[in-house]
Nucleic acid binder design. Sequence first.
DNA 1: CACGATATGTCAGACTACTGACATGAGTCA
DNA 2: TGACTCATGTCAGTAGTCTGACATATCGTG
Lengths: 153, 153
Amino acid sequence: MSQGEPGIELDTSLGYMLKAASSALHSAMEAVLKPMGMTITHYSCLELLAQRPGLSNSELARGTFVTRQSMNVLLQALERQGLVVRAAQAPVGRALPTELTAAGRRQLRAASAAVRRVEQDMLAGLDPADQDRMRRLLTACITALSGPPASAD
Amino acid sequence: MSQGEPGIELDTSLGYMLKAASSALHSAMEAVLKPMGMTITHYSCLELLAQRPGLSNSELARGTFVTRQSMNVLLQALERQGLVVRAAQAPVGRALPTELTAAGRRQLRAASAAVRRVEQDMLAGLDPADQDRMRRLLTACITALSGPPASAD
DNA sequence: CACGATATGTCAGACTACTGACATGAGTCA
DNA sequence: TGACTCATGTCAGTAGTCTGACATATCGTG
């Protein structure tokens, strides 16, 4: 109980609070998506495809923060369910462009509305200026973590 | 045509940014803990026990954002490894108080230092005032999400 | 042109965390 | 006292994600 910190002070640790907030959001999203038969990654994939049609498996994986192997499993399921379609041949390289089907867009519509409500609930106590501050702060954290991968000493 | 994200709705969604930040932190922590043979939940459990000795399995689960079933499996492994000890009998109710062993504290020390470095890297661009703002904002989000939902577990 | 480096798609196995289910201990209330 | 409710510990099965491995396609460099 002297010299260097004894550990991470959980009550004020931003790392811990970030995990807590993310966990709370995850649970809340799960709660609204589950009744629709969707997982969070499932929804995220559809949302990403709606905004950026033609993304490949690897690009979708990066955008949803899972490995390309996991996304591959998911995409195969979504394709079987008729929610997305993948090009049979790669226009360039090996990347196969993926797009939503009408059924996919329909399923996404309901899910997207529910998720938007969850996000609005989360931000209920924050005014527009607060939300801008939060964007700036989160962006700074993401940038800092993505940059220097090797800071060991 | 990989790296680099064109400006889309997702880039301003605080839900998405929160997930991105959490994912980046998760990866960074994983990268430093893996060489030590620890997972994030493993480390989190030890850190929590160091600050709140005597926590029960269910309390540890809540503090690390996993189910009590998952924590039970982890605790059994940690006990086999001699990192924690659990009371043989419950002093009251069914909750079994858990505490770190000397070996557990030793392993935690190295891990905690590494994690602290990761957290400091993440906050490198934020001054103390920014960090206070971030605490307030995250707390507001957590509170807002923990209140309304009326789902059972 | 050949070679290596990089990026992608995909299959297979392993692991982590989750859901479901049941038993036990403590508190509440009629 | 007995019934009800809630929290806890634990076992079993399931689901989602990960790591490892391999084949293929493009680009840069010599």
